[in-house]
Write a protein that binds this DNA or RNA. Sequence first.
DNA 1: GGCTGTGAACTCCTTCACAGCG
DNA 2: CGCTGTGAAGGAGTTCACAGCC
Lengths: 244, 244
Amino acid sequence: MRPAAETGAGRHDGGGAPDAGAVARGLPEATLERLTVYLRVLHVAEGEGKVTLSSDVLANAAGVNSAILRKDLSLLGGSFGRRGVGYDVARLAEHLATTLGLREQWRVAIVGAGNLGRALAGYAGLRNNGFELTAIFDMDPDVIGNIVNGLAVRPAESLEAAIESEHVNMAVMTLPGASAQQMCDRLVAAGVRNILNFAPVVLQAPDGVNVRKVDMSRELQILAYYAHQDIGHQDAVPAEDVGS
Amino acid sequence: MRPAAETGAGRHDGGGAPDAGAVARGLPEATLERLTVYLRVLHVAEGEGKVTLSSDVLANAAGVNSAILRKDLSLLGGSFGRRGVGYDVARLAEHLATTLGLREQWRVAIVGAGNLGRALAGYAGLRNNGFELTAIFDMDPDVIGNIVNGLAVRPAESLEAAIESEHVNMAVMTLPGASAQQMCDRLVAAGVRNILNFAPVVLQAPDGVNVRKVDMSRELQILAYYAHQDIGHQDAVPAEDVGS
DNA sequence: GGCTGTGAACTCCTTCACAGCG
DNA sequence: CGCTGTGAAGGAGTTCACAGCC
């Protein structure tokens, strides 16, 4: 009855036997977020010619403690470090990339060629690591046909056809909240099962569709919360609670 | 010794007395993220003329279950619902906004007037709820002086002076990874303690500085992970685990 | 001795289930 | 009766601490 609604929906967990070498399946969200950071750090280290890295160094660069780094890697299965030495940078990077599914081919469409859509189209993260930007859509006749990052903006009407012909399997939604749900429905109907939503709405999508959300407002508001707290009790807390 | 490095750093927790009516302090991250969603849903409901909402309806619209909605609200302190009726939309929205610190005045600077910076400058989330965009900076002479959303882009050299004169207390970093850490250091030195980072690097910031990160690459990669998993065992899992 | 890999303890978050008010 | 508010149970994720290999 209840649709998936946002945040890493779809297939995880599984609840299978808590068996021996549990293979890289159903990794916790928190671990996944960190894996992406490790991968980035490893790429930088690779570029600097580093061959091995200790968990301490890697963890520091990633902004986490080394215990959790080691635990995260242990969840992946196999052994990727040498005791007394550290991790082989290239090997670990390759394994992380494979685990994350970056050795698949991800054909991405951007839905909404406004400022944000155009900005993201130029973003390097969309042109590396298995991701390829293959189509951009918009509803505005003034925008359709414009060239964005080498791609002509297509009319929203052609969404279904283009998804099929371009084998799009991932969508980034950068459109106004008002049209987001409707476009999401069309994407899903057209077979797209992976959606990254930048529109400020909670998308309802059927089970089996992975939806994630990026939300600047949310981040600003959380920042405001912490900042507000800081103001409330400048510096050291006076040990007593303030009441109202 | 270890700096704060990303993600809701700064002052939370406190560890104070686990006393009675624990006032809206040190709310868990997960709760904060949901509060921002509730607030958005409430605003929509308000616009539709709704006066009260049950936890069930609100939770559904927010994409969570009602138990956690009620638990979240209970963490805020006071009672905001009427049993048998539901929540007063306006009153709850106001309380959430206050709790999140949105009744403070947040003066935001965007650092980096590239595509992304300009796109965010026009984003409504930066012009509501206590946030006010007050300055935009860039290093590129060709960009400096351009008008973005009614503001002239200022040279990066004037960062410190402008932060002081404009009373900037929050920064959004939309610049290349290569210059992000250095700019972050300058922001911190200039007294900014709240930073939202869009650059693809792990920022190191001293304790007491709140840093949050938005990362499209991360989201795409996590999406790829789930999608990859889905491919591995199409549709329903056959109840037995597949091994390799 | 250095550093990984991991059980076990711990802490935090979520879900359950129901008491209690309207 | 309906729906909130919350203690208690349960499940997840993190940290500790150390055994085990290099």
